[in-house]
């Protein structure tokens, strides 16, 4: 199996089933590091990680920052929305500037689909996609898979129902791609206006009735409804959405008795999920946060640390 060093993690489609298993197995070791008295290992001492965030994000950025620090790397956060973009710098110029700083890993979140691919083609280091437009959010899919595997003991042949705004969701796309590697039955359900036009290409089953979609589900993934963007345009009202597709004690009963409920956060309580479920015993929302840290530590370790050769000296372009 080829190593991960000097590769980039742009989407789940670039990974094999064996890659995913290797990442999740490595994350198990890092989960344990975060539970010790000294929650830090010296593995990436001397490595530089740049968090390049063009979109507001608290939890993903914090998770990556902490992951890098627990590996003893030097972590630099650049909230570009607040700086260069306002001053008119292009992505290409930002890439050149960063290249001159010789980072080992760039973690990027960008509102435009494909921006991480562009950066990866311009900069000679590993690029990890932390969410780009409506394209992909591979680290979220991996941490979700890690959480599911720890709870269910396996990823194979599960029934996973994703509820909400599927059409605009990079989380749904990446999760669907990953779960297909393990022969899961992936179902999506939501209002017609929020279902993808080309669901077949994702390999998912499309439902418009919540009860049928949840019947026999092992895992229920609830997506965030971006009320600020959708209300009035694609959704009549939040109240109607909550009544039809909201996950509460009544609707969760349609799924298997041992089904777990996941949410990538931040949650709109009372819209896509009710507090009784979000804080209930089936909820693994906080496990997802802990998994996120372990998985991101594993990714930084594999992509920055693993067998990385020092860059050739004297090369210029």
């Amino acid at each position: 199996m080829p190593g991960f060093a000097n590769r980039s993690l742009l989407d789940i489609e670039g990974l094999t089933r064996a890659d995913v298993e290797r990442i999740l197995d490595t994350a198990e070791a890092f989960l344990q590091v975060s539970r010790r008295p000294v929650r830090k290992v010296p593995t990436l001492r001397g490595k530089t990680i740049i968090n390049l965030f063009y979109e507001a994000s608290t939890r993903t950025r914090t998770s990556f920052e902490l992951a890098g620090k627990r590996l003893s790397a030097d972590v630099i956060n650049m909230n570009v929305s607040a700086s260069s973009v306002k001053k008119g710098e292009t992505l290409q110029d930002t890439c050149r500037t960063l290249q001159a700083m010789h980072p080992d890993v760039i973690v990027i979140r960008h509102g435009a689909s494909g921006a991480p691919n562009y950066v990866a083609s311009k900069i000679d280091c590993s690029v990890i996609n932390a969410g780009d437009g409506m394209h992909a959010h591979p680290t979220q899919a991996l941490l979700d898979a890690f959480t599911i595997r720890r709870d269910k003991g396996t990823l194979d042949n599960l029934v996973v129902t994703i509820v909400g705004d599927i059409a605009h969701s990079r989380v749904a796309r990446s999760n669907a791609h990953l779960l297909k590697l393990f022969d899961c039955e992936v179902r999506v359900v939501g209002p017609r206006t929020l279902l993808p036009a080309a669901a077949d290409s994702l390999g998912v089953r499309v439902f418009d009735d919540l009860k049928t979609a949840l019947d026999g589900a092992d895992v229920v993934m609830v997506l965030r409804i971006q009320s600020e963007r959708l209300e009035g345009a694609l959704l009549p009202s939040m109240r109607e959405y909550a009544r039809t597709f909201g996950i509460g004690p009544r609707t969760i009963a349609y799924a298997k008795p041992d089904a777990i409920v996941m949410h990538p956060g931040p949650m709109n309580r009372g819209v896509e999920i009710e507090s009784l479920v979000a804080d209930g015993e089936r909820s693994v929302v906080l496990e997802q946060v802990e998994a996120g840290l372990a998985v991101r530590m594993a990714l930084l370790y594999l992509f920055a640390g693993e067998g990385a050769e020092p860059p050739a000296v004297g090369e210029a372009d």
Partner: peptide, 23 residues
């Protein structure tokens, strides 16, 4: 203990052994 994360050649070791958890 698993020492993979503490190797003094962690950055250059090829190929990297699978990490097992310290327990």
């Amino acid at each position: 203990v698993d020492i993979s994360l503490y190797r003094d050649d962690a950055a250059t070791a090829l190929p990297n052994p699978k990490i097992g958890p310290s327990d």
